[in-house]
Design a protein around this nucleic acid. Structure first.
Lengths: 220, 220
DNA sequence: TCTATCATCGAACACTCGTTCGAAAACGGG
DNA sequence: CCCGTTTTCGAACGAGTGTTCGATGATAGA
């Protein structure tokens, strides 16, 4: 949706989306009134409707912007990387990195997934399914490569999403590990669990490089 | 809250709670009107208020009943079991077993945790914290016993809750594994990830017994 | 059968909601 | 500076909200 054009209009829209996401995350979508949004954005009530047609479309824009960003960033990050285990690791890092920095949006994504209906709902769900399939196929590939056929791939996929997407319920940047630590912990937890120790050991050799996301103490 | 007394009153209250939970799960708490509840329970609007003082207390009763049940069942199940790994395994089985059979409540628990305020919120949060601490201490114990100090216990705890509590987003009793399969998959996934393979191998010897919860094909 | 308690109900109140509309302000290229 | 476009706004409407109240029906022990 948001191309490279950062027009005045786009900038303000993004600002409205971010502010609204914060309010939605705090009070919940349905018990947030358009008057609350108006107050938070310092815009008049009717002025808001210049940027979207309804409260529901506002919610859609928030969700769509998030998924587009996270999927887009992910695609960029994965181009050129072939080893599926490394791809998965990068995907996890990207996912956690983005949502730790956008926890309000994450909460809205989780809580208000069913607050959108009709065509807009379909659009969001397609993007979501796209992302899920990406992970599921990755896991299938990894399992096949290593001959570890014990685990149900569907269970594994959603377990991974579960542990990643649950963070908005507990993660505190102040008292917890930073994103790099969080990421390496979860990656190891999941990969070891999915494959067993040996394969993770092999992985260790290949990934000692990219420091851009794990500058701090990391077990990898 | 609900003692052994199954008076007419209690029965009807529980029925109202269960029905309301289904509606809340479907439409969300805030966009469910008391008139919706009235319609679903086939009670008059004002008649509902004989069983609770406000919509918010209705939500509280649903959540409180759930946590009380799951924690109570868990305590019963764990009495007499000393090995921390076995305790954890039983806890996971109990958790998944209960919430697969009460997915509506699970959704309400997750989505509407912050829709309760004041004293009622504190009560719920205490029970929740109790339960989380139980798991976290268990993990600490397990990590100490096996000398595997690599993983952050807090991350591990909430990762476990994440994968378990995410199921309401994807689990379908028709197309997915049954609870026993789900449970054994997640248990293995988590324990292997948390400890590494060896310790899980040891565990395999001790737990081949309890058939009451895993009658079906199980890898354990 | 009488009566006190339990359970249910219809109607109404005060309030907030999302959205619309026409007009005014701000802006920017000529 | 002017004018067409972009952006903002105040006021209002109709619909739906949670809750209350007094009264009525059901129930069960004396």
């Amino acid at each position: 949706m948001p191309s490279e054009s950062s027009s005045k209009y786009d900038q303000k829209l993004v600002h409205v989306l971010k502010t609204s996401a914060a309010v939605f995350a705090d009070k919940g979508y349905h018990s947030t009134s358009m008057r609350d949004i108006s107050r938070a954005t310092k815009m008049s009530l009717s002025g808001l409707y210049y940027y979207f047609d309804s409260k529901e479309e506002l919610l859609f824009l928030i969700q769509d912007y998030c998924f587009s960003t996270v999927i887009g960033d992910c695609r960029k990050l994965l181009t050129g990387v072939d080893d599926p285990v490394r791809r998965l690791k990068l995907l996890i890092e990207n996912h956690l990195n983005y949502f730790v920095q956008n926890m309000n949006e994450m909460k809205v994504l989780s809580h208000e997934a069913n607050s959108i209906s009709g065509e807009l709902f379909k659009k969001i769900n397609n993007k979501k399914r796209q992302y899920v399939d990406l992970v599921m196929n990755l896991l299938r590939e990894i399992a096949a490569d290593s001959g570890a056929g014990g685990a149900d791939v569907r269970v594994a996929t959603f377990s991974l999403f579960g542990m990643m997407n649950w963070i908005y319920n507990w993660y505190s940047p102040r008292k917890d590990l930073d994103v790099a630590g969080l990421s390496s912990n979860m990656t190891r937890l999941f990969l070891r669990g999915f494959l067993g120790e040996k394969v993770v050991g092999a992985e260790r050799l290949e990934t000692g490089r990219e420091a851009h996301l794990e500058r701090t103490v990391s077990i990898w």
